[in-house]
Design a protein around this nucleic acid. Sequence first.
DNA 1: GTCTATAGCGGGATAGAC
DNA 2: GTCTATCCCGCTATAGAC
Lengths: 199, 199
Amino acid sequence: MSSAQQKPKAKRDTKRLILDICERYLMQWGYNVFSYHHIADELGVKNAAIHYHFRTKSDLAVAVLLRYRARFIRWTQTVEALPPQAQLDAYMRLSLNFVLNQRVGVLVTLGTEYNTLPEPLQEQVKLLQDEIFTWFAALLERGRSSGDFLFNGTAHAMASLIATTMLGSQLLGRVRGIGPFEEVVEQVHLIVGMKRNSP
Amino acid sequence: MSSAQQKPKAKRDTKRLILDICERYLMQWGYNVFSYHHIADELGVKNAAIHYHFRTKSDLAVAVLLRYRARFIRWTQTVEALPPQAQLDAYMRLSLNFVLNQRVGVLVTLGTEYNTLPEPLQEQVKLLQDEIFTWFAALLERGRSSGDFLFNGTAHAMASLIATTMLGSQLLGRVRGIGPFEEVVEQVHLIVGMKRNSP
DNA sequence: GTCTATAGCGGGATAGAC
DNA sequence: GTCTATCCCGCTATAGAC
């Protein structure tokens, strides 16, 4: 720790910057469209320099996903003390911010490209999907027990429905803008009983 | 018409076959991954032969979308006499069949790739999305009026929620198989009041 | 850690023969 | 309607200099 502070600018944090740029491309274009040249150009280096840090494109994308998954886990911890409604809203706001920034979550791009991805990357997509859907189901279960949510069916099924709605809404938002996205968010509130309940 | 019958096998219906194969690739891989070589190989011809029928890749994809849209309109006519619940189920079964065949609807692949598509193709995606969401909203409106559906919020908002759920479920199904997809379909039944209604 | 140079491949598209 | 041949481009990845 203290040794790291001794050379704070010893080297530019290139590895981190590469991950940042790659993550952005994954969310804007997906895996198959971007290239090492795109990343190298933004950093003002040559594509061989990227290969020094990540031997193959697959390695790079897997590294991005590992970081992405760890960040999601940390995020769930930062919101776990909030009321269930606030947690649900916070999650939907994540998707909304993606759309506002002309991106979509990596589950959208990599899910779509799934059949064309290298196997180690497919594995990461599966794991991330598991983590998100599992967290979602637990949230809905707790929220219903506490009386914050009100809905029919299993919490697991409702979690799958809302989580997939968020995926699809990002596709809708990418084409039609933020308005239609927000309309869906509002409707999600209704189906989990966060506003009016019975017809 | 009769002149067409005079030479029923005069030429192999290559143009149609190209459209069929391209459509399949669009649903399996999206626009950016497949190439003229992939199509040519399946037909047992060279890629130049495909260029004879469709000058550019963009032209070909647009032609596929025009046919796809026309087919959707015809499909809505074949189901329009059915009860609202049956129409909703028929639509969800379309998505389910995509997943069973290792595909997803073109709105999933082309929506994801939207930012990278040639402009004429973006236009087609927008139009198809319009047609599907508009049809869906009208269906939910009619179904609620007739007492077949029961839900809170506007029909338009509920239509957007269910339509986006179908998009996202195809991504889920692509990764995790048909089970999770069917769980979502069942939950859709619940939120539009097709089974138990009040908590 | 970044460079130049290059190998090797596959893509979109065209010209002109058959 | 399909072919061969070709152009030019961009991609992944590596070798070896600096």
